[in-house]
């Protein structure tokens, strides 16, 4: 059963057609990638799934419900978590607090006047996530002082803390060194199942080793979809990437 579906999803910016009638389907537990050259409409497509952009036409169906017109913060509550191409964290809060505030956003009944360490299950949950993103040692440091790679991990941690069913990652390895990129790939692979992960990448190499299925967009339209081998063998894909 698909957890996410789009049906003839389109986005027009005046005369420019950024995304052109894309049908897309992701099953629960999959790790999927969307690739394509610059200007292929990946991020626009992605933003429509997350709710940061509303579609011109077509539908976004999440967990069986049409969420096409639902704003981003409500989709967050429905279970869509995301990270951004440009790191989006709270630099003046500690690493723990960054995770904590996201975890807290799922629990609106807590007492605002209570102290930060007083909610035990929130603290435990935050610590588990810190463990997963490997930042336990830096939990009390200001997020703004972390290295770039660590900040990207923290951002994923923030998204994880909101208990998503679907995690959307926008170029998670942007700006990372080759070794970091490989490590991050492995890390993302570890997140999938039970979590569903969809990531957008510009760089094909990053996603090759880890994805269950790869979708290629070109000029806003669907070009090809399949396993790594299938996509590699696709003549259209080769033409697009080789010409680049």
């Amino acid at each position: 059963m698909p957890i996410l579906e789009t049906k003839s999803l389109s986005k027009h910016f005046d005369a420019l057609v950024a995304v052109d009638s894309v049908d897309y389907s992701v099953d629960s537990g999959e790790l999927r990638s969307i690739i394509g050259p610059n200007g292929a409409g990946k991020t626009t497509f992605f933003n429509m799934i997350a709710g940061d952009l509303l579609p011109t036409s077509g539908q976004v169906i999440f967990d069986g419900a049409d969420v096409s017109e639902v704003p981003a913060h409500e989709r967050s509550h429905l279970g869509i978590g995301r990270t951004y191409q440009i790191t989006n964290i709270f630099p003046k809060l500690s690493v723990l607090e960054n995770i904590r505030i996201a975890a807290q956003s799922r629990k609106m009944t807590f007492n605002l006047w209570s102290t930060v360490p007083s909610h035990k299950e929130l603290v435990e949950k935050s610590d588990q996530i810190l463990e997963r993103i490997n930042l336990t040692e830096k939990r009390d440091e200001l997020a703004g002082t972390l290295a770039h790679g660590e900040q990207r991990y923290l951002e994923i941690g923030i998204a994880l803390a909101t208990d998503p069913k679907l995690l959307l990652l926008d170029e998670p390895t942007a700006g990372m060194s080759p070794e970091e990129t490989i490590q991050t790939g492995e890390f993302i692979k570890g997140l999938a199942d039970p979590l569903t992960v969809v990531l957008v990448e510009h760089d094909m190499e990053v996603v090759l080793g880890i994805s269950d299925k790869i979708t290629v967009l070109h000029n806003g339209a669907f070009l090809a979809e399949g396993t790594v081998e299938e996509v590699r063998a696709n003549a259209e894909v080769q033409r697009v990437y080789l010409r680049e």
Binding site: P91, E97, I101, L112, V116, H119, I158
Partner: peptide, 22 residues
């Protein structure tokens, strides 16, 4: 406190707070 953390978070990155659905 939690309220203070929210105030600091909002002062720091208001959009992000909204995106998190707080």
């Amino acid at each position: 406190t939690n309220l203070g953390m929210m105030i600091r978070a909002g002062t720091n990155n208001n959009t992000m707070v909204k995106v998190l659905g707080i």
